[in-house]
């Protein structure tokens, strides 16, 4: 469908004029039990408590609030700053991590919801200088410019490779359609995926 003429206002310019809410960081209170009659389900928060997350194969204890997103838990509480907070609203893909193998916006996922799942992040793809072939191919194919979208882009690329083996360009476009790149690296990213699928970078 062709792009209709603009009537002088875009979503971006509209939203620029309006306030963007931040995230409250105060108000940590003691844990309470839900006041439901029987049966009484398990209840957490609203204060801080410890959960266990399985990240890149390792079990990690981390203190979160019920309102802490998975992205904030990773970045602010587990010192894993690979996943990026860009839009914080599911609208860019910069925060993409794999939850049970599926690309997921960690900015819209509560950390509590990730308990019991297998998480994989960009940090799991390198061990010192020894990087995953996909990561090496991102470098050799020059598939990043400013690099801000790259951690998310790599995770979506990895899921694409694992799901499809040798993805076609159309399948790559589909699987990358939840990751925005301001620098326009898409073509190079597809080259890096293709190279990895064909055994490059090992």
């Amino acid at each position: 469908m062709s792009h209709p003429p603009d009537h002088g206002v875009s979503r971006r310019s509209f939203l620029k004029g309006s306030a963007v809410a931040g995230i409250a960081t105060t108000g940590i209170t003691a844990a309470t039990k839900a006041a439901a009659g029987p049966p009484v389900p398990e209840s957490f928060g609203p204060g801080e408590h410890e959960i266990t997350l399985s990240v890149n194969g390792a079990k990690k204890r981390v203190k979160v609030e019920t309102r802490t997103t998975l992205l904030d838990a990773l970045r602010d509480r587990m010192d894993m700053t690979g996943a990026k907070k860009i839009c914080d609203r599911g609208a860019c893909g910069g925060c993409t991590v794999l939850v049970d193998g599926m690309p997921t916006n960690s900015c819209l996922t509560l950390a509590m919801d990730a308990v019991g799942t297998e998480l994989r992040t960009i940090e799991g793809l390198s061990n010192g200088d020894n990087a995953h072939p996909l990561v090496k191919n991102f470098v050799t194919c020059d598939a990043l410019q400013c690099g801000f979208c790259t951690p998310g882009m790599v995770m979506s690329s990895l899921a694409c490779l694992e799901k499809r083996g040798k993805p076609t360009p159309e399948q790559m476009r589909q699987d990358l359609s939840g990751n925005l790149c301001r620098c326009g690296t898409y073509g190079r990213v597809m080259e890096a995926i293709d190279k990895t699928a064909n055994g490059g970078g090992k």
Partner: peptide, 22 residues
């Protein structure tokens, strides 16, 4: 986000009871 309690039901009955709260 404002703080909230997070309920993890083990059954639909538990979920119903919790969802009925104000």
């Amino acid at each position: 986000m404002k703080p909230f309690s997070y309920v993890v039901p083990k059954s639909l009955d538990e979920a119903k009871a919790a969802a009925a709260q104000p």
